[in-house]
Design a protein around this nucleic acid. Structure first.
Lengths: 191, 191, 191, 191
DNA sequence: AATGAATGAGGCTTCATTCAT
DNA sequence: GATGAATGAAGCCTCATTCAT
């Protein structure tokens, strides 16, 4: 693939990410994407075999970036608390930057086992990263704790995606709160 | 609406819940539902205005039951810990009973603002119930803690929905762990 | 299938025969056929699974009629010569009546093994009928002679289909000539 | 046109013959042909105006060869019987060598009057050659006899094209039988 | 009220052809 | 001349919805 082709490949992925993100898989027409990309409908089929394949490619690229950045940030930080803060910050920032692309997280095509496998793989890799952080710190049952931590973070995405006025400051606050809750529990907050 | 009509209304909702749950909104055909209900395609339109309306009605009925049962269980329990245990158990049991209906949680119709509003309303009511429990116990920032608690629980639904071998015993174990983590944090588990 | 449905089924077959016959399989659009039948595009799919299936059904109906009529005519006639005359007349009349449907004989869909099998089956049945006539008369190697006789007839279809001015009288003349040639050869015509 | 160009021209025709023969006109993509020829898609359009033109050129070349060879063989032979044997042998050999290219005979493009005219012209020339042979021998109504003879031969092509196990020996046998039937008729074979 | 045949808008995809390099 | 990326018209088919019975 030449340089120009790689660029167009990326441009289609960009447009697809944009439109799938706004409308979800089923409500998105190929023509929506190609018009947004400024190309003809047929051109998309030179780069991707089908609408499903395109969606998968978009999702894969997004997740790979997510995981790559997460790994990097976790590696840079030192100690359990800083590492967990990085995870939390990264997770929430990810959704923060995708405020207007919420649909992509909810409307993947059904019955597509390739996609399902891929998603499962990504979730596993995400969990593994967090699990490693916990394990390194000597946490018992790190599987469970990793899931719970990610769960707390993921629930907050709803606020970010659906509350228009969510600010960057609130984001930082949530990071603090979440990490604190995770480590120290809520009980001691009681009078 | 006569009694016979109410019965048919319910029968359609039952079939719709079944099929939407298995295939998701977009991959479900009206004819799938009406065949499963043993009625003619046109009959559905005597009871519901459109496919979207039917989906909304299904979702509403499911959520109302969810919230009603939750309220009841929380009211029965006494004290923070028992109440949180009820919330956790109820949440996980809900998914446990819907193991084979996972698609309904991921594939709602897009661009349907009525549904979006409704979903938001339900989430708010769910949160309010948990928030009340926390507030009653004197927890500060109960909004945040409620979200975090629900988030932890909701993350675990992935395991339930996608791991075939998830057992009832594991469910109880998760309830314990989650409540404990929520109250006491993970820090003290470290050596 | 109700009476009205059976009628529509036939009406679609009639239109399909008409249009496929004029344009061939590939140049025919489903909308050509449904417009000719005075129905909506989707309606055709209530009666036939696909364009291929429709074509197969059209072909099958035409061939079945062909073979049924042939059998009947051959049964009515008595003796080798009269029977062969019936075969020849029937064969040529068939094309004569389909002067304006020539394309259907040349443009079936490729790569459709069901159709291929069916065509082969019909040809075999056709040949078997002629073979029986010859065998009954004590002709040796009836397989070969049956093929040759049908071949002579079939070649003449080109004249019928592509020469606009082919008349009914010429048809009768060809019947005579063909049967005579088949039985007595051309040699004795030489001086 | 330079020598190199003429070679490419021929190479495209060769590939087109191969692929059209295997898949028929409609199921063949230009890219199938150009890939088989090892050239770019656009290159084909430097040599032929369209897919139809290419098909016509392929057909013309094939038929011209057919007729040239036939003329030569007929000229070499001496007497009615040997000449007819040459025609029969040549006809059957033609299909025998094209066993794997059957589709080309059944799937020409429709609605292309140029092709139709050409085909008609070739058939006429073929018939004229046979007719001359018969006329020369003093056969009356040579038009009809020529058609009948070719018809017998052409029917046998079905066996050759569709019966995998058709051998060279069977071919010779068919030649004998066909010529004999044509000259002496089948009647005298009866007891 | 119930039916289910009919409708037809609309989307995905293919592929012959063009044209800038 | 040769390339092959890009184009976009065109067709098959689906399925939510309607309506005559």
């Amino acid at each position: 693939m030449s340089g120009a082709q790689r660029e167009k490949h990326e441009a289609i992925l960009d447009s697809a990410f944009e439109i799938f993100g706004q409308k979800g898989f089923y409500e998105t027409k190929i023509s929506d994407i190609t018009e947004h990309a400024g190309i003809a409908k047929g051109t998309m089929y030179l780069y991707f075999k089908s609408k499903e394949e395109l969606f998968i490619a978009v999702t894969r690229r997004d997740w790979e970036t997510f995981l790559r950045n997460l790994s990097y940030r976790v590696k840079q930080a030192d100690g359990l608390l800083p590492k967990l803060r990085q995870v939390a910050e990264h997770h929430l920032e990810y959704y923060y930057e995708r405020k207007s692309h919420g649909k992509i997280f909810f409307h993947a095509p059904n019955n597509d086992s390739e996609l399902m496998k891929m998603m499962h793989g990504f979730l596993t890799r995400y969990m593994a990263i967090v699990k490693d952080v916990l394990e390194e710190a000597g946490m018992p049952d790190p599987d469970f704790y990793a899931k719970a931590f990610i769960g707390m973070l993921d629930r907050l995405k709803m606020d970010i995606l659906f509350e228009g006025e969510f600010t960057r400051e609130e984001l930082e606050l949530r990071v603090d709160q979440t990490v604190r809750l995770f480590l120290r529990g809520s009980e001691r907050e009681l009078n």
